[in-house]
């Protein structure tokens, strides 16, 4: 029983870590440009396929991680530069439509190049082993996901709260015009937010492939949507909230599947989005945000 619960806990934390990595970028971008980036989930797919290409090419693992971060950041900057800058002054809905269009372009280009056939994706054999702590066991992959996510989030918090760039990002999120008047290079800051958020999402793609073992060109859609649910749980626009929301969602989803009888497990996605609607009904500003002047 302990083993079962511990196993579920680790599993939930690992899934939650993936959601958190995607949700943080979502929330950062929303916080600064007030736009939902529907293409954000597709960065998970880009990250996963970039890693797969590296693995096939025989690149060593630490380099793959680095490379995925760089590719993710570049893809994010491209999306930001192509779409968001020209549309920045347009009505909000125009921005959503544009990001949705970019997402469709990315997905269908990937379908054209890679075909819809799912590919196998495997971490090295070491990762598939299990480690024992006293009476309980956990898979190395899950522990790696949890650990790496914590390291990346720590790095992110350092950037956001301890560097000049972080100050500029927070100032821009607070008030774009005022930040510009204070001499913040607003456009560059926005693109930096895109780069950082997208790099995290791409890393989530690498880990996603490792955890689930199969990847396909449309794999980013559901994680992207669930990351938004995580953002709503934590309060849209808050980085810490997105992180906690990701963990809560991951744990809730795993508990839903793990604790209810088998025949309910097919309904896990219904559960997640049902949860979204319930939260929007009861606490639309999120669980951790006390006050928001603009009800986003």
């Amino acid at each position: 029983m302990t083993q079962y619960l511990f196993q579920q806990l680790v599993n939930g934390l690992a899934l939650g870590s993936l959601y958190a990595l995607v949700a943080i970028g979502f929330s950062m971008i929303y916080g600064i440009v007030r736009l939902i980036n529907f293409a954000h989930g597709d960065l998970v797919m880009i990250g996963a396929f970039t890693s797969l290409a590296m693995v096939v090419g025989g690149v060593p693992w630490p380099l793959i991680l680095l490379f995925v971060l760089v590719v993710g950041a570049m893809a994010g900057v491209t999306i930001g530069a192509v779409i968001f800058r020209p549309l920045l002054g347009a009505p909000q809905v125009t921005g959503f439509i544009a990001t949705l269009a970019v997402s469709i372009v990315i997905q269908n280009s990937a379908l054209m190049i890679l075909t819809g056939q799912p590919r196998n994706f495997l971490f090295p054999a070491v990762m598939r082993e299990r480690v024992t702590f006293g009476t309980v066991q956990a898979s190395v992959t899950d522990l790696l996901i949890i650990g790496l996510t914590l390291v990346l989030i720590a790095g992110l918090f350092f950037v956001v709260y301890r560097t000049r760039l972080g100050v500029a990002m927070r100032a821009t999120a607070e008030n774009l015009t005022a930040a510009r008047l204070m001499g913040v290079a607003v456009h560059r800051t926005i693109l930096a937010a895109f780069a950082i958020g997208s790099a995290l999402a791409a890393t989530a793609g690498l880990l996603w492939g490792g955890k689930f073992g199969q990847i396909d060109p449309l794999l980013g859609f559901v994680p992207g949507l669930k990351a938004f649910v995580a953002c709503v749980i934590g309060g849209v626009g808050s980085i810490g909230g997105a992180m906690l929301g990701g963990y809560i969602l991951g744990l809730a989803e795993v508990l839903f599947v793990g604790l209810l009888p088998q025949e309910f497990s097919g309904y896990r996605d219904s559960f997640v989005f049902g949860l979204l609607i319930v939260i929007l009904l009861l606490k639309p500003s999120g669980l951790f945000v006390r006050h928001v002047e603009e009800r986003a």
């Binding site: 909000q92 649910v229 709503v232 989005f273 986003a296």
Partner: peptide
């Protein structure tokens, strides 16, 4: 709520 919640919901 404002518009974008509807899109995602």
């Amino acid at each position: 709520l404002r518009g974008h919640y509807l899109a995602v919901a």
